[in-house]
């Protein structure tokens, strides 16, 4: 199955799961889907059969509110049973509202509060360098999340320790909880800021899984500079009435919207 079809399949799972649960961060889930597809079906050297392999690549979903998209990707990739998606957000579910490593196979870190995943990713990348392991560490942050100061503390560290085995991917959909990022707290010139912190800067259409995969495959992981990818995305990508609409940050399709969304996703 090609990456685009995988992404479409994951999106259908997201709509089904969120509507079944009656809640979820639908906009964020659909925004990140193509990035997760590229990672889990092309880039990451990991496998459901070797969850504790010390040499596995590491992925951290720092934007923990994108848990729904993450679980659907993990289900698509065989880490969790499809049936578990039906328990999303229910009591004692293996798929809680934010990722929990003690619950969900494949999850590395408990995220949900923003600005935590990237410093941890830096620590993982540094651990690889210190222990001579060749695994790579990928961290996906929301763009609004880059307003957290802790990310910039970590960015200094990544550059200082020359962590070329680390990739910060920013899901740049331009929206945060309340409004457009530029209206809340301007991030631009985001690329210049990241470059100034000592990263190689890459920009990509984050809703094109093939382009994301190709870009990540081409990075030099033995380099002495950490990598950053600004992945330009559309929040709610794939469902026209959800796309680029702040109202869908924490909303799920209801009534006729469900069938309309599934139909649009083919």
């Amino acid at each position: 199955m090609n990456l685009e079809k995988r992404a479409a399949s994951i999106r259908r799972r997201i709509i089904t799961m969120n509507t079944h649960a009656g809640a979820g961060h639908t906009g964020a889930d659909l925004s990140e889907t193509d990035i997760l597809t590229a990672l889990y079906f092309h880039v990451l050297d990991i496998d459901p059969d070797r969850l504790n392999d010390p040499n596995r690549d590491r992925f951290i979903l720092s934007k923990g509110h994108g848990a729904g998209g993450y679980y659907c990707t993990l289900a698509e990739a065989g880490y969790i049973d499809e049936a578990q998606l039906e328990s999303y957000l229910q009591a004692d579910s293996l798929c809680p509202g934010h990722p929990v490593r003690q619950k969900t196979p494949g999850v590395e870190v408990n995220t949900g509060a923003l600005g935590h995943g990237f410093p941890i990713a830096c620590g993982l990348a540094l651990a690889a360098r210190k222990s001579g392991r060749s695994y790579r560490t990928f961290c996906l942050c929301g763009d609004g999340e880059m307003q957290e100061g802790s990310n910039w503390e970590a960015a200094m560290t990544a550059s200082h320790f020359k962590l070329g085995n680390l990739v910060l991917i920013i899901d740049r959909n331009g929206l945060q909880l309340a409004d457009r990022t530029g209206n809340i707290m301007e991030l631009e010139p985001l690329g210049d800021k990241i470059r100034a912190f000592g990263f190689t800067l890459n920009e990509v259409n984050g809703n094109d899984p093939d382009a994301v995969a190709e870009l990540l495959e081409g990075l030099d992981y033995s380099a002495d500079k950490p990598h950053a990818v600004i992945a330009k995305t559309i929040k709610g990508r794939g469902v026209s009435f959800i796309e680029d609409n702040p109202a869908w940050h924490h909303r799920v399709p209801m009534g006729k919207e469900i069938a309309m969304a599934i139909e649009e996703l083919g």
Binding site: P54, R58, E108, V109, G115, H116, F118, P119, I120, A121, C122, G123, L124, A125, L126, A127, A128, K130, S131, R133, G149, S150, E153, A154, M156, T157, H160
Partner: peptide
């Protein structure tokens, strides 16, 4: 090689430490 100084950045001190621990230290 077993001392890492993260500078005056205490949030990062803990985040980096958690990552190092997850990396096996």
């Amino acid at each position: 090689d077993r001392v890492i100084n993260v500078g005056i950045a205490e949030q990062n001190l803990i985040g980096i430490s958690a990552g190092l621990a997850l990396g096996g230290f």
